[in-house]
Design a protein around this nucleic acid. Structure first.
Lengths: 192, 192
DNA sequence: CGAGAGGTATACAGATCAGTATACCCATGA
DNA sequence: TCATGGGTATACTGATCTGTATACCTCTCG
């Protein structure tokens, strides 16, 4: 459930490996990047890579888990920032704005799900769990803000969020459009 | 621009190759599927595959172009079906419902963009063009229906559509939720 | 002091990758 | 009749893939 505290502490070499994996897997794709390339970019021996992560699949899962951990901490910071309970519901869209300005290759988790069809793949599990977490977060926030029909509103916000992150690289203004519409929906759900 | 009429007529073997490619690329991922596997599944020699499509990249582009052609014809049929101009704006969401019931691995074009980062890749071009076409279709339909602020509405519908197709495999009810919200938006934009 | 953990260096196995070479078969149509 | 296009069959190249084997180094901590 909690993505962050149960993470095993990384050795210095392990840290560099995950950093290189984040860069390369995200920019070029998971299947297209080999472990040799990651070892080279992190200044590490392939032997060390396998000692730390066991397999490429293990490294993929570690890459996604690390990214999820960082993303959740930004979302939590936005949600916990000063503001009304109503503003908190759309806080993930604020976090999304700075997030998408840094990453121009779309959502690492949707991209990973596109490449890892097998639900048993450890990376698939991490990515799917990230989506489930966001959906339930919207529902919690909608309930806390006293919105009517929290499950319906949460699903709508979830679809908007994922649509924004998926289309961000494809057309200008999609992230802002999703955030605007999300705020309108929450406002109406609080009033109504 | 038009995806369908300029398609070169396929030989019988070429037809079987594209069919096998559609199945395998979509279900398992583009990078993960080799040309040998596609040749085997289509009962064709690798030599024939290369005679027809030149390279794996060419086959990937042909696979996506073929899928785009079929998808657009379904969307056009839904848009041109009997109904008001207002209903036509959300017709793509009707087409999406039957489309997503057949395909449980999300959007083939978003998935392709996840795997093909290079904008010069012919497959990347086809996928990006599919998204641009949908966005401009929404804008045309919104204008024709007399909605206020067609560009804003079109971007919102586009985000909703892509969010639905991306999250369809992840949570139940996202496609219906997007369609419902889309109809509400169009109704408000026509009235207002 | 000595064991273990973290890491380097290099070489290798076995499979699979995209793409090519060579030679042949067969139907259609000029 | 014969050239051409579509296709088969098989073998191959050279690169790259994940993962392992062997041997050594160095620091820390008990």
């Amino acid at each position: 459930m909690d993505s962050g505290s149960d993470a095993p502490p990384l050795t210095p070499a392990g840290r560099r490996i995950v950093d290189a994996a984040e860069e390369l897997f995200y920019e070029r794709g998971i299947t297209a990047v080999g472990v040799d390339l990651i070892a080279e970019h992190s200044g590490v021996t392939k032997r060390t890579l396998y000692n730390r992560f066991g397999s490429k699949d293990g490294l993929v899962a570690a890459y996604l888990a690390e990214r999820d951990r960082r993303w959740r901490s930004e979302v939590r910071a936005a949600v916990d920032a000063d503001g009304s309970a109503e503003e908190a519901v759309t806080a993930p869209f604020e976090a999304l704005r700075s997030w998408t300005s840094r990453y121009t290759r779309g959502c690492a988790f949707l991209n990973a799900l596109a490449e890892l069809p097998d639900p048993r793949h450890p990376g698939h599990r991490v990515a799917a769990e990230q989506k489930r977490w966001l959906l339930s977060l919207f529902e919690e926030l909608a309930t806390a803000a006293g919105c009517c029909e929290p499950p319906t509103l949460a699903t709508r916000l979830f679809v908007l969020h994922e649509g924004a992150v998926a289309t961000g690289p494809l057309a200008p203004g999609t992230v802002a459009a999703a955030a605007d519409l999300a705020r309108e929906l929450v406002r109406a759900a609080v009033r109504g």
